[in-house]
């Protein structure tokens, strides 16, 4: 494990692979532009896994799509910076993005079948990336495809390279997606709920594989999930998102054991466990606000059991409460929030 110095500010380590500053994203809607991502900041270094956690609509996927330059046409980035290995992505020409995507940064999605082309063999699809970015010959691309299938643990790679996506199971398809994503040895892999559609047994295999690949390829990994169990398994650091904002960030153990935001505490309490049977399940009352009707002040205040009048006044900034631990809760020092035991 390379959790040696999980620095949130990333101050004095090797320069980060990905660095995001003050990123804000707006989507055009019927009533003008709506802010869907608000002031997001983070860095990821080589061999590091950062987890983005939150419920649907919290802005996890928008963050990922901003990095890949894959935001929908209706989106705009009014402020902020995304640097991939020092190269600015916000506002850069499409040709630069196309060069970076696949070669320096890559992404795998929840449903591999929608990202694989059913009409081409997996070998062709892995080879395509290599031919495009490295100008490899057909023969070299095929050899690389076999090598990659082998790397991601698909048996009989030399033969399977001629198979079509439908001939693979869900777990195997996700391995194929990883082979495509990693064929040009990118520095950053974004995994957006890569195991959510899979059985737990297959999920465990894939998480092990990801860890292995990260070690071998020095990957920086941005892992998006709503499953706190998966976070506990694979992430070095975690950022919790709510209503388009990061509301807490820390290394994984600290965040689980000493949460500093009531929403994080709520998520942790709400998890049913396989080890013990809780009397009654806890659920956070209400539901997250729609982007158009964010409450004034802290976005979580209407659902928060600890809210005080100050919470509805000003929007709290993300601030450090301990070294490498940030929170957006005004009351964090006062509250004694419960984390997981041990």
């Amino acid at each position: 494990m390379t959790a040696s110095e999980p620095t949130l500010a990333g101050a004095d380590r090797r320069s980060p692979v990905l660095s995001i500053e003050n990123l804000t994203v707006e989507l055009a809607g019927e009533h003008g532009h709506v802010r869907v991502l608000d002031d997001v900041n983070f860095e990821i270094g080589a061999r590091e896994t950062l987890g983005l956690v939150g419920e649907s609509g919290s802005g996890k996927t928008i963050t990922a799509l901003s990095v890949m330059g894959l935001l929908p046409k209706s989106a705009r980035i009014p402020s902020g910076s995304i640097e991939m290995e020092g190269e600015q992505i916000v506002g850069c020409p499409l040709s630069d993005l196309q060069r970076l995507r696949g070669s320096r940064m890559a992404m795998v999605f929840q449903e591999p079948m929608t990202s694989l082309n059913p009409a081409f063999t997996v070998g062709d699809q892995i080879g395509e990336t290599v031919r495009r970015h490295r100008g490899a010959s057909r023969r070299a691309a095929r050899a690389r495809a076999v090598e990659m299938l082998d790397l991601v643990g698909i048996p009989n790679a030399a033969r399977r390279v001629r198979s079509y996506p439908h001939e693979f199971s869900g777990g195997m398809r996700q391995r194929v997606m990883m082979a495509i994503a990693l064929a040009c040895e990118p520095a950053l892999l974004i995994a957006d709920e890569p195991t959510t559609a899979l059985d737990v047994t297959i999920q465990a295999q894939l998480l092990d594989l990801l860890r292995d690949l990260q070690d071998q390829l020095d990957l920086a990994l941005l892992f998006i999930t709503h499953d706190l169990g998966v976070v506990a398994d694979i992430c070095d650091r975690v950022m919790v998102m709510y209503a388009g904002q990061v509301i807490e960030g820390a290394d994984a153990e600290t965040l689980f054991e000493h949460p500093e935001h009531p929403y994080t505490e709520g998520l942790l309490r709400a998890m049913p466990h396989i080890e013990t049977r809780s009397g009654e399940l806890f659920s956070i009352p209400g539901s997250p606000p729609a982007p158009l009707d964010r409450p004034p002040g802290c976005a979580f205040n209407p659902r928060c059991g600890y809210a005080e009048p100050t919470c509805t006044a000003d929007a709290p900034p993300l601030r450090s409460i301990e070294p490498n631990h940030t929170t957006r809760c005004l009351l964090a020092e006062k509250l004694r929030l419960q984390g997981v035991q041990e």
Binding site: V200, D227, G229, V230, A232, A252, H273
Partner: peptide
Amino acid sequence: AHPIANPARQR
């Protein structure tokens, strides 16, 4: 195979 939502224990 079911991951436990507790990094210290899960690892």
